[in-house]
Design a protein around this nucleic acid. Structure first.
Lengths: 303, 303
DNA sequence: TAAACTCGATAGCTTAAACCTATGCATGAA
DNA sequence: TTCATGCATAGGTTTAAGCTATCGAGTTTA
């Protein structure tokens, strides 16, 4: 049995005339007759009663035609669904972001994404890089904004922006007097870090060319916000990604941020996705949109 | 798009593996891959994400597979429906009967039909021959028990039984003394008839070789029962089909029935049906069943 | 009563497409 | 590096859906 066969049955049931039904189906009358006959043999029932002048559906034929009509409507529905799905800028797009990016980037890119892709329903998840990458690989996410090379096979990246680290310190800290901070000076200060798993923790340590300072585990924070408050309380210094710096910090917790003298003290923020993901062109446009809303100084040439 | 294609989509969505899905569909892997690819091109959407080691339905693919599953179930339902309809002894069978047959024949044949065709749901309509034949031709009835040649093109008949007419008269009527009544004697009696349209009226007149007796129109009855009561009241004589004779008549209205000396004074009761009717074999068995329950003396050799 | 007409069925052929086997190619594991 | 896995591609075969032409039963018209 076939969708075509069912179309033929419906046509004959409607027109009660093989010739006109064939015309409606855009096939010749013998073709339609043959297919109907074949279906009748296959089903083992007569669907139509062909007395000489008139064609009449049998009770079974009537019932089958009625159900076939419904079925064909649903088939058409599926095609319409596909048509809607053909628009890659429509539907849900599930994105992940690492915790040191999301609070700074979301307020910037969300309005832009809404404007640029009005039919898109973006969803956001904030988590550690490893967890985001696992969910991405599992198909739970369509993309993830991270700051490290995913390395993982089957994933690719689109560059978003290159973000320098700033040193955050209390207003009255000795290093705050200079315009820039020398990386070498950081070795002698008390560096506050995020908890394990945050890429920013590892990157901060790398910039300072330090291993985990023993005995500092108690000062690990779970968010940049907390970290900055700890700095304001005079517990130490920390590195803050440029995009996360807030003007309010200087007035409220009394924090100043100074750039480093090392140009390499930065992180590359990128959008990771599965190589097989079918809406890659959408992701490229999403990446472009994000680059547009990030301060131009940070944006890398892009793909 | 095709039912087969949808089956393939469901299989891949379920197994998440082209090879195993192909196996489940009893086709080779390239065949299945090709068909899926073709459907994707036709629909204009990727249904599956083939990253190297894993196959995953896209959101659209997932949705389409879910709907396809429902659709395929309904298609299977149609086939099951046909299978049930394949049994010609099941379902409704709409039969008509003329009014001078139904009251006598129904009580005889209904129990037998129920026993012989337990899955059949026979329905009965009692009306005049012409109306029954029109409804038969229109497809509102599947068969009609009548006592005349339908003549109408497109209809055929199965013989049921050959029914002699008896003369019904009051107990004390002069003709009641003889064992048989001579047809010639009927010319001089007052013959009571059914209203116009009943075949029995025409046949009674034919037996008596009479035209409509003028001035007798007021004595026309609409049922045999009434006619017999009129006879009992002494208003005249009438012809009664053998099967309609009731033993109670001799005690209650005081009627006797006598056979005629003319063997041709009878009617041929038959089952008419459309030549194109698909369940003719069922009708033949129904006719045979009716012949079995009619007193053997009346039954004709049959088809 | 014959001729024309209607309409579904049949015959014979053509073409499209579904299917097969064999092979390629990319990726991940030993 | 080699092997294994798994989907895609290539080329050829077969099924079946399609066509035109024609038949034949049953009506209608002349």
């Amino acid at each position: 049995m076939n969708l075509r066969d069912l179309r033929y049955v419906c046509a004959v049931a409607e027109h009660r005339h093989f010739g006109r039904a064939a015309e409606a189906c855009h096939v010749s009358q013998p073709t339609l007759s043959g297919q109907i006959r074949k279906l009748e043999v296959y089903l083992g029932v007569d669907l139509f009663e062909r007395s000489n002048r008139i064609v009449r559906p049998t009770p079974v034929g009537e019932e089958i035609a009625a159900r076939a009509r419904i079925l064909l409507q649903q088939a058409a529905e599926i095609e319409r669904l596909a048509q809607a799905g053909r628009d890659p800028e429509a539907g849900a797009l599930r994105l992940g972001m690492i915790a040191t990016v999301a609070p700074a980037l979301l307020p910037l890119c969300l309005p832009a994404l809404r404007r640029r892709f009005p039919r898109l329903h973006p969803g956001f998840v904030e988590d550690l890089t490893d967890i985001l990458l696992r969910r991405l690989a599992d198909g739970e996410l369509d993309g993830a904004v991270i700051a490290t090379d995913p390395g993982d096979a089957g994933l690719k990246c689109l560059p978003l922006y290159s973000e320098p680290f700033l040193v955050a310190m209390p207003k009255d800290h000795p290093l705050a007097t200079a315009e820039r901070v020398a990386v070498a000076d950081l070795k002698s200060v008390h560096l506050l870090l995020l908890t394990d798993g945050h890429c920013l923790r590892d990157q901060a340590l790398e910039v300072c060319a330090m291993a985990v300072p023993p005995g500092q585990i108690d000062t690990s924070a779970t968010s940049l916000e907390t970290l900055v408050n700890l700095v304001g309380a005079g517990l130490g210094l920390t590195l803050v990604p440029a995009l996360s710096v807030r003007p309010g910090w200087s007035t409220d917790p009394g924090i100043v941020c100074r750039p480093l003298d090392e140009a390499a003290a930065r992180r590359e923020v990128r959008l990771a996705y599965r190589t097989g993901f079918p809406r890659q062109s959408l992701l490229q446009q999403v990446a472009a949109t994000i680059r547009e809303v990030v301060p131009t100084a940070l944006v890398t040439p892009g793909e």
